[in-house]
Design a binder for these strands. Structure first.
Lengths: 136, 136
DNA sequence: TTGGCTGCAAAATATTTGCAGAACA
DNA sequence: TGTTCTGCAAATATTTTGCAGCCAA
């Protein structure tokens, strides 16, 4: 991970411990939509003494600062996405892989009042369920 | 709940116990997107000896037969929707209320290959986050 | 009659919390 | 140095499971 990226976290107010840097590195550019356990296991390889509490604490700090999104995709456990730019997800019902779909919903669709009935939309997440290319 | 509705469940292969009928009645036309605990509490009023295991068992049976959908909305607990016709949801970030939005995504938007990259979409769920009319 | 359902309790899983010691700033 | 973070363990919350007895078909 580049020093500039690390410094960006520092500027955002993160206290930079080695554990946190290991988590930042694990998440940087990661498109696998990991769960807390995935992050724990992945970071444990490089930093064997890390604890679950630290993973959860760091995820929480990242969420608070808008550096990570919690995905509403898997009812069994939470998954996280370090890509916070607006996009959506595909979920393969065969292999359970979560993929990214870059598609600007707001650009394509204008919601009309009849749909909204007074609700003010700030953001949206779309889950597309189906079969991925590998499984087809 | 109408007798015909009850009979429909019977035809679908449900063994009709009083507990199950109480759950069917609780869910029938329910637009509150209840959690398992909500269902448990609601049914307990009319059927005080019901257990959590029965609620979970019945939800599972309903899901298997396509009579109830599990919503990917709340990372803390699962919510269920007895309305299985295609629709989406609004989540108020102030009061946490889950609302329905009837909007045919497939009708409005044609996903192009560039977005799909080999993924075959079978269904979709959209979560709209924002503020509901009551909270505005 | 019997296979499936219920209720109880225990287990499993995921996440949160309390706290003493460590370490970043 | 002081505040924040870490790691451990215990607590909490949700969902699942095992099993003996019950009951709808």
């Amino acid at each position: 991970m580049l020093k500039e990226s690390i410094l960006r976290y520092k500027e955002k107010g993160f206290k930079l411990t080695p554990q946190r840097i290991a988590i930042f590195e694990y998440l940087d550019g990661n498109t696998s939509h990991p769960s807390a356990e995935d992050i724990y296991k992945g970071v444990k390889e490089k930093y064997p003494t890390i604890s679950f509490a630290t993973v959860y604490n760091t995820i929480q700090a990242l969420r608070d600062k808008g550096e990570v999104l919690e995905l509403m995709i898997d009812s069994k456990r939470r998954h996280y996405d370090p890509n916070v730019s607006p996009h959506h997800h595909t979920i393969c019902m065969k292999c359970n892989k979560i993929g990214d779909m870059f598609f600007d919903f707001a650009e394509k669709v204008v919601l009309r009042d009849e749909h909204l009935s007074g609700f003010e939309v700030l953001s949206s997440q779309i889950n597309f369920y189906g079969t991925c290319g590998d499984c087809l």
